[in-house]
Simulated scan of single mutants.
Amino acid sequence: MEQVKIEVPDGALTALRFGTGPKIAVAAHGITASGMAYRSVARRLPEDWSLIALDLRGRGGSAGLPGPYGMTRHAEDICAAAVQFGQGRPVALVGQSMGAYAALRAAARRPELFTRLVLVDGGLPLPVPVGVDPDVVLTATLGPAITRLSDTFPSAEAYVDFFRAHPALAAEWNDDMAQYVRYDATGPEGAIRSRCNGEAVRQDGRDLLVEADSFGADLVGLAVPVALLHAPRGMFGQAPGLLPEEVVGHWRKRAPHLVTELVDANHYTILMTDGPATAIVRHLTAE
């Protein structure tokens, strides 16, 4: 792995490059994550591939890049990475959770840059109850994650232990997860915290809710081959998943070009454990 930079109009985006092969895949992560979330996937890529796992603005090594945030802004950054590393050739694209929405927006706006799109437990419009304030929904769904961003821990290992106890991770804890947490940790000993920008999370979370209909339009009109891998269990390791089967079935009918696969995992282990990571690679590298 090496850290690389992607030139964008207001600075440089950080990404992690796994592998040295000439075939390129670009990856976008979840709302409080980083490019290190793709370590399991990267290890399973064939030798002639490289994975460019972005730290989206507001996260990881890109935490200092300014807003505004939102899926259209992230999509612009994804396209910049595709142009820089594709060098005139289209690349494969994968996004998980929030990153799936940003990747979908990128492929919808610039289809010539991408050979295929893999959505991992994200990318489908999330139903928002009529008349409910999006900020109320945001607090109910992402409140604990946003609160965690302002928490401090006595050491990096204490931060790792905090994640190790998470109900969605504990039973399948592995070194990829530990390295992901260590990469996110910053600050002096005694006051370790996440590198993730809380304001970026709030803006991005609200964008996912307010602009839900636009992601449906992106999916229906998509000109790039697309596959969705979704999990039956959600962010706390329990059913239902983030994308219930009825939601997946609805969009499969609306977008017949969408290939779907149910993967036995939860919202996090679908990306960070062996079997699901192998499934992602199978779709990502398909001819």
Rank of each mutant, 00 (worst) to 15 (best):
A27R: 00
I31N: 03
V120L: 12
C196L: 15
Y69P: 09
D55Y: 15
G241D: 10
E199T: 11
C79N: 09
C79S: 13
L258K: 01
V118R: 00
K23W: 06
D55M: 12
G70L: 08
F162T: 08
W251F: 13
R282T: 09
I6W: 01
A108E: 07
A191V: 12
L258V: 14
D10M: 02
G64Q: 10
V4M: 06
G131W: 02
D121V: 08
A92V: 06
R282K: 07
F163D: 07
S97K: 02
R148T: 14
M235R: 05
L209F: 08
R164L: 10
H283C: 02
R73L: 04
H230E: 10
L243R: 05
G198L: 09
Y159W: 14
F18I: 04
L271G: 08
L117G: 01
L242R: 03
G198K: 09
D274S: 14
P111L: 03
I192M: 13
D264R: 07
T260K: 13
D218H: 02
P111G: 11
G67W: 02
V94M: 10
T152Q: 13
L258P: 03
H257P: 01
E172M: 03
A286S: 07
A25M: 04
P256D: 05
D121G: 10
N197W: 08
V136D: 11
G123E: 05
V136N: 02
C79I: 11
Q203G: 07
P232L: 09
D135Y: 10
V4R: 01
W251I: 05
Q238S: 05
E2C: 03
G190D: 15
L126I: 15
L13G: 03
G143M: 14
D184I: 14
R44Q: 14
S34V: 08
P256W: 13
E189I: 09
P111S: 08
R73H: 04
S150D: 15
T269F: 07
A92Q: 12
H257C: 04
I270H: 01
D176V: 01
D77F: 05
T20S: 15
E2P: 00
A212W: 00
E76W: 01
